[in-house]
Structures are given as C-alpha cells and as structure tokens.
Design a binder for these strands. Structure first.
Length: 699
DNA sequence: CTGTAGTGGAAAT
DNA sequence: TCCACTACAG
C-alpha cells in the first residue's frame, strides 16, 4: 500500500543515513514491517501451526542493534482497522484463507515447493504475535505502544510531539501524516534512507517559499493513496504538476480544474471524488492516536488547526469512551479487534519479576509510560550527538551494551579520515605466500571451493598476528623497483636475473618478518603471467569500444603472491579492476603525468564486515583539469588480497621519466591502428600503476 | 518522449 | 508489499 512510487519521487529529499549518526536519539519503529519480514522466515511453521519464535528473534535483532547505537526504540503497533480499510482487510483475510487451503491441498499432492509459496502468502501477523514481542520488549525495558488505529499516525504524532526524532518504516504513507524525519529501508547493518520533510520542496521542484506541506499531501492523495484511488491516468508526476500550477487553496474548487490544467479533457471529476478527497485529507490530518504522556486518545492534529469539518473525519477513527480500555489497548493488553484481555501489564506497578537473562541487553532510556517522562530531553540529547566526535559515556545497566557501543565507536575511530583517505593512493596488498610460489611460477588456479571461501566475507581465515608496517623508502624501492622510474622498469624487463633477485629478497624478507609493505603492487613473474592475461583483455577493449568515451576494462588477475602471516584477512587470488569513464582523448602521457591513486573505503562495506579487512575502492585518477579520466578498481571484497596501505603520493617526475615502462604489447598478428595506440598505451600505463609489468614481447 | 499501469520475482534462514 | 521491467496511451 502506500503511495506508489513515492520513495523514488522523494529522492532529492532523501539521503543515506547510518544509525551511528543518530546516537542519543529516539526512534519510533513501524514494528509491523519487522514482524512481517520475520514471519517470512518461518512461514511454513506458522502455516502448520507449529510453535516458533523466529519472528520474535528477528525483531529483537533490530531492537538490539538500535540499543547498541544508544538509540531508544519505541515499537509502534497497528491497532484497530479503520472503517475505510475494513473492506480491504476483509479481502486480504479471505485471500489468506484461500492460500491456506491451496497450500494444504498442494501438500497433500506432494508439491512442496508450490505449497511453500502458498504458505508464505497465507501467513498473517496477529496481535498475539505482536504481544509476544511486546512482552519480550518489556523485559528489556523497551517501550511499545499500540496505536488506536494506524501505527503511521501514531508514529507521526510521536515525531511531532518531539518524543521520537526519527521514524523507521517501509510505508511511504508516513510522509503524509506529517512526520519530519523518516528512515526507510533500514537494514541490520544500520544503514537506511532518511527522508526529511523540510526538503520535500526539492523533490517537487518548487521554490521553498511557494511550497507548503498541504500541497505535498494533496499531491500524494491525488496520485492515489490507501483512502482514495487516483483518477485514471493520474500519478505522482501529474499530481505534482497540477499542485504546482494551482493556487486555489479550496480543493473543492481546485479539483474541478484538473482536466483543464493537465490537458486531459476526457477526465471527469465528480462530486463523489471531491468528497472522498476531502475525507482522505482529513484522515491523514486528524486520525486518532494515543498520547502516552497524558494517557488519553487525541487526534493527530486538532480539528481547529485546519478548521476541518468533523463530517470529513468519518475515516479517522472514533474516540473510545472508556479511557481504561484505551489505555490497555495502547499497552497491548487487549486484542484491538475483539478488545479481549490478553495481558495485564501496567507501567506504574511493574516490578521486574525476573532477573534479566544472561546477556540480555536492557534499555536504560526513560519510558514514555513513566510519569515523569519529559519529551524535551530528547532533542537536547540529539543535539549533542550530532557532533561528529561526540562520544558519550552511557550509564548502562548491563556491561554488554556498553561494550557494544564502545566497539562501535572504536570501529568508527579506526576509520581513516577523509584527509587520510585522500593521501592514500595505493592498493594495500595483503599477501600470503604459498609454498608453490617459491618457484616463481604462476600457481595453478585455485579450486572453486577455495576461491569461494575467499570470496565469502564471512569465511574465516586463520587468526593472524598484527602486521608490522614498513614505510621505509629504500626498502620500498628495492621491493618495487619498477615503480621508481620507467628506466628501471625497462631495465628490469631486459634483465631477468634482477627480477629474480628482487623476488628472492622479497621472499626472504617476508619469510623472516611480517612486513606489510606500503607500496603499490609488487611485480613478480607470477604477476607477469597474470598481466599477460589482463593485457589481452585490455587490448581488446579499444577494438571493441572504438571511439566511445567510456571504456570498461576488466582485468582478472589470478594467483597473486600470497603470504599467510601478513594480515588478518585473506589472500589475493583474483583481482578485478574495472576501468570506468576513461576519456579516450587523453593521451597516455597526459594521463600518466598526473595520475594519482586514491583509496576510498565505502563505509557500508566496512560496516558490514567489521572483523574482516576493509574492502577498498582504488581510484587512479588523473588530476587534469577535468576528472573524466579516472580509473577505479573495485576490489570485489575484503578477502581479496589487494588491500589498501598508506603511501605518499609519488614525486612528480617529468612526463618522459614518469612513463612507467610499458610499451604496447606487440602480440600476435593483430595490427592495432595508430589511432588506437595511444589508448592502448594509456591502458598499459594504468596497468603499470598497479604494478603490472609490460607484457612480454612475443615474436 | 513521458508517465501510468501491469507483470513477475523476492522477501528470511 | 516493493521493485524492476515492459507495454501502452497521450
């Protein structure tokens, strides 16, 4: 449900966000989203009526994650169905029943796969399931609240009242209820998409002074929402166009002008549509919510605020006459539909009957059900936590949480700053030496099983000692002689013994000390074999792409040297470099002249595999006036060995001197047109920046 | 060409 | 339910 296409439409009002930047704040959660996803994991069991708590554990995982970032979660649950939605709910229930029957039949026929898919369709999130989660949350001192009607309105109110600064949901309707900061698509790594209401004008493409929130809400309702289908042929784009065109505030008049303004003569706007439009708008504004501080039901916005006629509020719910019932409903003690009593928890007399189980993390935030809860505290807290380097010592009941928060903080501290990142330019190479390499010949390709484990970020490698880092310049020169000057590189090509000597030296050093050399790739004979393969692909590239501005190069490098004791992570066996957006106009010399390498660490990936070495994107970018010539190599994942290490930008040398000695490989009978030679050189240059040597000339 | 509407696959472990 | 993709209408 929700508004079709609203999240993409709000792209300009949204930004990626991570929970770590929300420390100290309070987040209202649309728990139905979590429950629904959790139910998916155990759909079969539930369909068969078996006992399971998989969905509970799934939700608790999210709760623990929020707590670990010192975020106070408030779990919000749906309450009664609105009369407007009763029909659709009825239909859904029937469809689920049908799925259930079909699933049973398919099972009898032995068609398990099909039965499984039907079972997924028939599972429903019941209030009993919600209550189980609520009970688990109570033990953890995590606030829960059941909305009288829709959780959306309840969360928007919590946001408006300053109790929750953010809302976590998957339902785009939240924006229409007037929530200010909404996080969509929150995942278990803590990343999500933040949509801010005060940026909506950017998405609508209108100046801030001409924008008001009503325009946006009306646009969404026009495009079709839960309470009103759209007029045929009207979607978000047309609705937006119309709302920006009209200055008429009275929708009863404005809506009549839709056909005229949108040049859709055949469109008919009848009075029924207009009435329903007014009702839908009132539903979003005035739905009943529960105010836990005052312990009473209220409208999300007072009728007086909009001078709305109460007759439009027939879909906005009705006030429960018995405040005790309303209170217990909000606490989750009652089944919202039958009002049957299922539990009798009361915040005022709830002693901790049980001691917390081992490792159970408890929230120490103030409860919204506490009599002295003060909503104003939270924004202040938030303000503090906005400081990038703000680390607050949290007085947690359990050490577990404290430790986890500290771990998060350490992790962040360990991340290089932007300045540090830009000063890095080389690939860090985490090398592992395998015995087979002592012969300086390329190792045979690893078995599929092996390579799979290397590609699996969760695959565990043997624990390793912390690497000793070498930044010694002369050692670097020794180890990586072909980087120093083209002259040397070409010398090396002509004199094999040199290379072997260097390799032998490298090996001895690697064997004796655990050294991580902060340099670009070493070039070895093993590498040469790889390079040959890579170069073949590079050669094809100009041919295939011709004069296209964007070339893609993929070099697959296999069997790079390994050294088991260097880093906590893995082995380089395969490296994929993708060249993107390489301007063909740039000559190799230009490109070489100003080429620099930068290392970027995508934070999300770092976050995802904190224990693994950090994945890196290596960007070799030309520093020419325009940035079009850049080469970025994405190392597929952390266990790929080529890892970033710090190195200073190499000294600038005159163009000729800085050509890193790779002449165009004159393989085969393929004659490459002159026009393409430059490009080819360019590629070679880039390869050389990775430490690849010239492809041996084959005659 | 733009925008809407319809279809099929994925969701969790 | 949401997303990506495609077909179709204006």
């Amino acid at each position: 449900m929700g508004i079709t296409g609203l999240i993409p439409f709000l792209e300009k009002a949204s930004a990626k966000v991570h929970l770590k930047s929300l420390r100290g704040s309070t987040v209202a959660v649309d728990t139905y989203c979590w429950l629904h996803k959790g139910v998916f994991g155990c759909a079969e069991k539930l369909a068969r009526g078996e006992e399971t708590d998989i969905y509970i554990q799934y939700c608790l995982k999210y709760v623990q994650m929020l707590l670990s970032y010192d975020i106070k979660p408030i779990l919000v649950f749906d309450g009664q169905h609105l009369p407007a939605k009763a029909l659709t709910e009825q239909r859904r229930r029937e469809s689920r029943q049908q799925s259930k029957k079909r699933a049973a039949e398919l099972l009898r026929l032995g068609r398990t796969e099909e039965a499984r898919s039907q079972m997924r369709r028939c599972v429903d999130v019941t209030h009993e399931m919600a209550l189980r989660l609520i009970q688990e949350c109570r033990e953890r001192h995590v606030d829960c609240i059941v909305a009288p009607y829709e959780a959306d309105a309840q969360m928007a109110w919590l946001n408006k009242a300053g109790i929750a600064q953010y809302i976590v949901t998957e339902d785009s309707d939240l924006t229409l209820f007037g929530a200010q900061k909404i996080i969509f698509k929150l995942d278990l790594t803590g990343a999500g998409l933040l949509v801010e209401a005060d940026k909506i004008h950017l998405a609508m493409g209108c100046r801030e002074e001409r924008y008001n929130f009503d325009k946006f809400r009306r646009m969404c309702i026009m495009s079709g929402c839960d309470y009103l289908d759209s007029l045929p042929g009207i979607g978000l784009a047309k609705a937006c166009k119309f709302m920006l065109k009209t200055e008429q505030d009275d929708m009863r008049i404005a809506l009549k002008k839709i056909p005229q303004y949108l040049n859709m003569r055949q469109l008919e706007v009848d009075d029924e549509y207009i009435e329903n439009f007014m009702k839908a708008e009132a539903t979003f504004k005035h739905m009943y919510i529960y105010n836990p501080l005052e312990r009473r039901m209220e409208r999300l916005c007072a009728l007086e605020d909009y001078k709305t006629d109460e007759s439009y509020c027939s879909n906005a719910g009705s006030l429960l006459s018995d405040s005790e019932v309303a209170f217990n409903l909000a606490l989750g003690n009652l089944n919202p539909f039958t009002l049957k009593r299922l539990d009798s928890w009361h915040p005022d007399h709830s002693a901790d009957t049980k001691k917390p189980a081992k490792q159970m993390k408890r929230s120490t935030h103030k409860s919204i059900w506490q009599k002295n809860f003060n909503a104003k505290q939270s924004p202040a807290k938030l303000k503090q936590s906005n400081c990038a380097l703000f680390f607050k010592k949290v007085d947690f009941v359990t050490q577990a949480i404290d430790a986890e928060i500290e771990a998060n903080q350490r992790q962040e501290l360990a991340k290089p700053t932007e300045a540090e990142l830009s000063s890095m330019y080389s690939l860090g190479v985490k090398r592992k030496r395998s015995p087979s390499e002592s012969s300086c010949h390329s190792t045979p390709p690893s078995s599929p099983a092996q390579s799979r484990s290397r590609h699996n970020p969760f695959a565990k490698e043997a624990p390793q000692r912390s690497p000793v880092v070498c930044e010694n310049g002369s050692l670097l020169r020794l180890l990586s002689p072909n980087k120093q000057s083209p002259q040397r590189a070409s010398d090396e090509r002509s004199s094999r013994p040199d290379t072997t000597r260097v390799n032998a030296l490298k090996r001895s050093i690697f064997a004796k000390e655990q050294v991580e050399v902060r340099s670009r790739f070493f070039s070895t004979q093993t590498d040469k074999a790889i390079e040959c393969k890579a170069m073949e692909e590079v050669e094809q590239s100009p041919k295939q792409t011709g004069t296209q501005a964007i070339k893609r190069m993929e070099c697959k490098v296999e069997n790079v040297e390994q050294s088991p004791n260097l880093t906590s992570t893995q082995v380089t066996k395969r490296m994929e470099c993708k060249e993107v957006q390489q301007s063909p106009k740039k000559t190799s010399i230009q490109a070489t002249n100003k080429m620099e390498c930068k290392v970027e660490k995508p934070l999300e990936e770092v976050q995802q595999s904190p224990k693994e070495s950090k994945p890196a994107v290596v960007v070799l970018s030309s520093c020419d006036s325009d940035d079009s010539s850049s080469l970025s190599a994405t190392l597929p994942s952390s266990q790929e060995a080529a890892m970033p290490t710090k190195t200073k930008t190499p000294p600038k040398l005159p163009p000729s001197a800085r050509r890193v000695g790779l002449s165009r490989p004159k393989t085969s009978k393929r004659s490459i047109p002159n026009a393409k030679t430059a490009k080819n050189d360019d590629n070679q240059t880039k390869l050389s920046m990775f430490g690849f040597q010239k492809r041996p000339v084959l005659k």
